[in-house]
Nucleic acid binder design. Structure first.
Lengths: 198, 198
DNA sequence: ACTTGACTTGACCGACCGGTCTAATATACT
DNA sequence: AGTATATTAGACCGGTCGGTCAAGTCAAGT
């Protein structure tokens, strides 16, 4: 049995938004690629903005239960989780590029820069997702310090800085259209540190 | 005497693109804000894409001759240039937010994520600009090592990583709509290091 | 005085946008 | 069987998009 209409819309929209951009992908295109009619679309999603929110949540869920869960596995040594995460990003981007010819980058980062100046709702949601992602880094850092793997530092700030770095690396890689940038620069995420201020 | 028509278009487009996005700003809007007619616009710019290129170059020039020139002043100790750069970004973003209520982020980063999947020409230009920016970091690092300010490392890779970090920090700050993120995380740019591999 | 060419004006174009609406159809409960 | 409800179908809407174009203005060159 084929996917539920709503899920088909969601999956298609996610793919298109990720591969191109929010503004560049129209509802009509999503519908025709998902084999759904306009009316059906608007039966499930009150607006394009609403669809965007659903796509974001959908992707965030997949992430949280996908490699993020794997990478930040409690059984892994904390600092190794960072490498795992970088690797996951690299392989994913590389696979996507091999398929589409273009490196799509990070859906959240893409959307953040594209729409956060004109859509408060979406901006806030993306911010929350970044917040959550940052907290995974935070946990890992806390544990690393506890185990004595790394010297004491401001774990909260450093965690956010690491997330920023990862997003920045993806941005540069996308601009170069070269996933290798992720592999070459990514591991340096472990070198970032922000001292505790008092 | 008022500005040249072409320059008026350029300045207006730059402001609008930076403050919102490429797709969200139409030629009509640019024209009316710049007090120019459609026809005049297309007399100077053959297409919207061409305008984008001009805007990018225009901004890149201003940067290169503006704070980048100041920050990467050869008279400054190399590593202090990084702090200067971070400061400049912070004050700029803060000023922009105070004016418009929204943190615009980095025009290059914004455009890169928005259009680089569907416009090779613009993508390549943005890539070149990042390349150039990275080379300023590179120079600084080389000099820092030469002076013995920092231990030996892969200056090329580290320079690129630093640029990535800066872009990532701006991305996160924009998503949070809070320039303070730049001030808090920015200085950690100096902690990034990529070892020379052999 | 006349010509040239840069510049301006604004009406106009087809295509597409997000979104609406009515009518038809499948499904599920009584 | 009958009826309510969820879903689908696709024509249609006003508005906007990037871009074109014919007509004209105006200053400089001869």
């Amino acid at each position: 049995m084929e996917m539920d209409t709503k899920e088909r819309i969601l999956a298609t929209a996610r793919e298109l938004f990720h591969g191109r951009s929010y503004a560049d992908v129209g509802i009509k295109e999503i519908c025709s690629m998902a084999n759904v009619q306009k009316g059906s679309f608007y039966h499930f999603f009150p607006s394009k903005q609403d669809l965007a929110m659903a796509v974001i949540d959908n992707m965030a869920d997949d992430w949280a239960n996908g490699f993020v869960a794997e990478a930040f596995d409690e059984d892994l040594p904390p600092m190794e989780r960072l490498d795992y995460m970088v690797d996951a990003v690299y392989y994913w981007q590389k696979a996507a590029k091999n398929l589409e010819g273009r490196m799509p980058g990070c859906l959240f980062g893409n959307l953040a820069l594209e729409v956060s100046t004109r859509d408060e709702v979406i901006r806030a949601r993306l911010n929350a997702i970044f917040e959550k992602a940052s907290s995974r880094f935070h946990e890992a850092l806390e544990q690393a310090i506890e185990r004595g793997d790394i010297p004491f530092l401001d774990t909260k700030a450093t965690a956010t800085a690491m997330l920023a770095y990862l997003e920045g690396v993806i941005l540069l890689a996308k601009t170069r259209n070269d996933p290798d940038v992720v592999r070459n620069l990514g591991p340096a995420i472990k070198s970032i540190r922000i001292e505790q201020k008092h």
